[in-house]
Design a protein around this nucleic acid. Structure first.
Length: 824
RNA sequence: GCGGACGUGGCGGAAUUGGCAGACGCACCAGCCUUAGGAGCUGGCGCCGCAAGGCGUGGGGGUUCGAGUCCCCCCGUCCGCACCA
């Protein structure tokens, strides 16, 4: 063989050709069925690492496969280019984030090209492109005008490391910043919010309409955290234990209104706005001390006492009336009641709530059971179902009925009603940083908060800024940026200096890809109608909550605002979450410093071998250890295919022609089986078994070629061509090169092969003979036998006769065509 | 604590519907080829056993002619949430 497989040369040549020939460019009026494949918007941190390679290999396989299947495939790529790392680097090195970022985009683009990922590059953009920012700001204004973007003073999560606020979602359970790992502090600040809570119910309901992994749906459900119960007012008691009419009642929320008769005290959050009003003089100093302690309590403290904590609290000295019993019960302050959920105050029912139980024990409160626990119950608070006791008109009812009855009663008394609560909170979008999309708002001393007029968009970031480690964004001191005329009165005003959370940028980029040239609107309805929803979205499970929730919210809001089609309620029809790559037991990441760079492998074994190794090593949705990759094995396999596929290969000397023998027929059958298997495997994301099938088939061909009779020329030709076709989505350069050498056409413009079912059927099958369910014999038999014929053949087998030893079978189960079980 | 996923050779895994357990690859072993090479080709490779045969999918029980697959209990690993009233 004159040719040897040289991946570097072949790969760079084909990469250039796909671009030059516009192989993966697609127009919005493409007549083929539309199919939108998208990998999650990458942050350009430098050249691609193995995690990227895995992600983009999966996506690219699908792009090429669907294209061969005859779809008009939209495969765009862009860059999530705003964000902290570039700005932090600027503070350290003095390099402007734009320069730093654009260099990284170049590096990542080059990497993606080198692994052979195919895109319509005409559609590319980055979040920091002025063009894109303009529409991110325009969308902000639409949301603002619709009341979905608002400014509010709120306790926020402040990260001292990042010098900015974080969304709740960006704070980890241990109270640290997901990005820097610093302990997050509580601060009260003016911030911008997107009113995602307005969509809580829809975000929950519409999960039923998408084909996502159940795990991701569950995580979203838990995050939204819907609960159903009752909200009602507790009257404040006077010194005689009677309800005071001069003070409004204290609202509480509960999911267990059925247990109201067991409420023996009430608790409010230390941050509750009515604490000052409700605390008595004798208790003021201890309450103040407690509140200060809670406020100063470091996150470290919370961490060390995670889980079941002592229920710390103090009495307010006030009493409230339990409306069910009319008795007066003490009102406490306790840190286990959060201001951010429900009404910030609860009715405490120690008999049926363990937290309340713990608190009651610690503070000497009465405990009354209102649900009869089972006889053998030996726990404390009983939260299971049972009959109501000690509950007057609820007695004897099970929880469900008692709840309804209690709510009706509260409504009848005119003190409360049925209430639904969500854990989801509004999305805090403002960040006190430079390298983000500016929020298009102007503050005027006379007219107040004013949106930037549409004609003045985009609000661009000034380039002439210095980055100092002051912890303040350079925008706050940049005169030209800051000083602006009020769009309403024309007087001097100042710009908002906060920029947007980068999750805003990634909440609509998939819409812009459909129409990135549009300078009238962010996208056209027509383009969205053609392409959306995304047919297959691919990314890491780490975005299961934040990014996906925000993108879903944007889609719904834009749809309601008439910017996007009203039928478009969900952006991503199907989601696939691929596993991460671990090295030395922990996630491979830049911050851990355990990256494996793909360059060396690309240089030596090539992109196709690397892609194949990613596909082969494990089912794509599972996490994988880098140690388990078999790059060399994959490279070796490609060389084997190369040797039998190359037109000038040394094996081709003495091929047969003319009539086919039995072995040739078997190869024809295997070839069609291969096509069927790969089609099936690609459709169900079973890439590891697809690679196994490539290898198995290749091994079969080798044995055939080297057998005594050798290979039939035409049968081999079809077999090899079929193999190259089904491998093309996985190893695009390799397949394209060999295909061109053999057939002089472009494999990625060929149609996906179809298996000839009639050729898969074989005249005979291997009949499996079991005795008492255990395999005892195998017999080659014609595949069209009747049950009786199968039974006769099986019973006639020497082996079976011997084992049965004259015994009459008790029962015979025949499962044609290939299984019989004889029971004795 | 709550919710979820999973447990198969030395290793990664396969078995799509209850029907031949271990495909394919890695590692290992043997043979061939050879101008010794980290190349190529062929074969072997769950466990016990010389063999016949027996055992075998985390453990125990059940359903079934038949269970890796379905049901119950237990053990273990991983992930998500976690004072959400």
């Amino acid at each position: 063989m004159t040719e040897t497989y040289n991946p570097q040369e072949i790969e760079s040549r084909w990469q250039q050709r796909w671009i030059d020939e516009g192989t993966y460019e697609v127009d919005n009026d493409d007549p083929r069925p539309s199919y939108y494949v998208l990998s999650m918007y990458p942050y350009p941190s430098g050249p691609a690492h193995m995690g990227h390679v895995r992600n983009y290999t999966m996506g690219d396989l699908l792009v090429r496969y669907r294209t061969m299947r005859g779809d008009g495939v939209l495969s765009p790529i862009g860059f999530d280019s705003f964000g902290l790392p570039a700005e932090n680097a600027a503070i350290k090195t003095g390099t402007h984030p734009r320069i730093h970022t654009e260099e990284n985009i170049e590096k990542l683009s080059a990497s993606l090209r080198r692994i052979g990922a195919a895109y319509d590059l005409r559609r590319s953009f980055s979040s920091h492109d002025s063009d894109y920012m303009k529409w991110t700001q325009w969308i902000f204004l639409q949301l603002y005008n619709a009341g979905l973007a608002y400014r509010d003073r709120a306790p926020v999560n402040w990260c001292p490391g990042c010098q900015t606020v974080l969304a709740n979602e960006q704070v980890l359970t241990d109270g640290t910043c997901e990005r820097s790992g610093d302990l997050v502090e509580n601060r009260e600040m003016e911030q911008w919010f997107y009113r995602i809570t307005k969509y809580a119910q829809q975000l929950l309901d519409d999960l039923d309409t998408v084909e996502w992994p159940e795990k991701v749906k569950l995580m979203q459900q838990n995050w939204i955290g819907r609960s159903e119960g009752a909200q009602f007012g507790l009257s404040i008691a006077d010194t005689d234990g009677k309800s005071r009419k001069d003070v409004p009642p204290l609202d509480v929320y509960t999911t267990r209104p059925d247990t109201g008769f067991g409420m023996t005290f009430a608790v409010m959050s230390p941050e509750h706005p009515r604490v000052d009003e409700l605390v008595t003089e004798e208790n003021r100093s201890s309450v103040d001390a407690f509140r200060e302690e809670v406020a100063n309590r470091s996150e470290m403290d919370r961490l060390s006492s995670e889980g079941n904590i002592d229920k710390r609290g103090v009495p307010t000295g006030s009493f409230v009336i339990n409306p069910f019993t009319n008795s007066s019960v003490p009102l406490f302050l306790a840190d286990y009641v959060l201001m951010t959920y429900g009404t910030g105050a609860i009715m405490a029912v120690p008999g049926e709530d363990q937290r309340d139980w713990d608190f009651a024990i610690a503070h000497g409160c009465e405990i009354i059971r209102t649900v009869e626990p089972p006889e053998d119950f030996d726990g404390e608070a009983y939260t299971g179902d049972g009959e109501s006791i000690n509950s007057d008109f609820l007695n004897g009812m099970k929880i469900k009925e008692a709840k309804q009855t209690a709510i009706q009663w509260l409504e009848g008394q005119n003190i409360g009603s049925h209430q639904i609560n969500y854990r989801l909170r509004d999305w805090l979008v403002s960040r006190q940083r430079y390298w983000g999309c500016p929020i298009p708002i102007i503050f005027c001393d006379v007219c107040g908060e004013q949106p930037v007029p549409e004609k003045d968009l985009p609000v661009d970031l000034p380039d002439d800024v210095k980055f100092m480690p002051t912890g303040r964004s350079p925008l706050t001191t940049h005169k030209n940026f800051l000083e602006v005329e009020c769009p309403k009165c024309g007087e001097n005003a100042r710009r908002e200096t906060d920029t947007m959370d980068t999750f805003v940028d990634s909440s609509w980029y998939f819409l812009r890809f459909t129409d990135p040239w549009n300078d009238e609107t962010p996208f056209s309805e027509k383009a969205l109608d053609h392409w959306l929803p995304v047919d297959q979205y691919i990314g890491g499970v780490e975005h299961a909550i934040l990014h996906l929730m925000y993108a879903r919210f944007f889609t719904k809001a834009l749809s309601d605002l008439g910017v996007a089609p009203k039928e478009l309620r969900e952006p991503f029809k199907r989601l696939f979450t691929q596993g991460m790559i671990r090295l030395g037991g922990s996630k491979m990441s830049k911050s851990k410093g355990n990256l494996v760079a793909p360059e060396g492998i690309l240089d030596e074994q090539g992109a196709d071998a690397l892609r194949l190794a990613h596909l082969q090593v494990k089912p794509p949705q599972e996490d994988v250890d880098w140690e388990d990759f078999g790059i060399d094995g994959c490279a070796k396999f490609l060389n084997r295919v190369w040797r039998i596929s190359h037109p000038e290969n040394s094996l081709s000397e003495n091929f047969r022609e003319g009539a086919m023998n039995e072995q040739d027929e078997e190869i024809v059958r295997q070839t069609n089986r291969l096509i069927e298997r790969i089609t099936n495997d690609y459709d169900r994301w079973s890439y590891n078994t697809a690679v196994a099938a490539f290898m198995e088939f290749t091994n079969t061909l080798y044995r055939w070629i080297q057998s005594d009779d050798g290979a039939h020329k035409e049968v081999l030709g079809t077999a090899v061509d079929s193999l190259l076709l089904v491998m093309a989505p996985a190893t695009p350069h390799f397949s394209a090169e060999l295909w061109e050498l053999r057939n002089s056409t472009h494999i990625h413009q060929e149609s996906w092969p179809e298996a000839d079912k009639s050729k898969i059927e074989s005249g005979t099958v291997t009949l499996v003979v079991q005795i008492n369910g255990k395999l005892k014999d195998r017999i080659e038999v014609p595949s069209n036998l009747t049950d009786e014929e199968i039974q006769d053949l099986a019973l006639a087998s020497e082996r079976v006769k011997e084992l049965l030893d004259e015994q009459e079978p008790k029962r015979v189960i025949v499962r044609p065509p290939a299984l019989i079980n004889i029971v004795v």
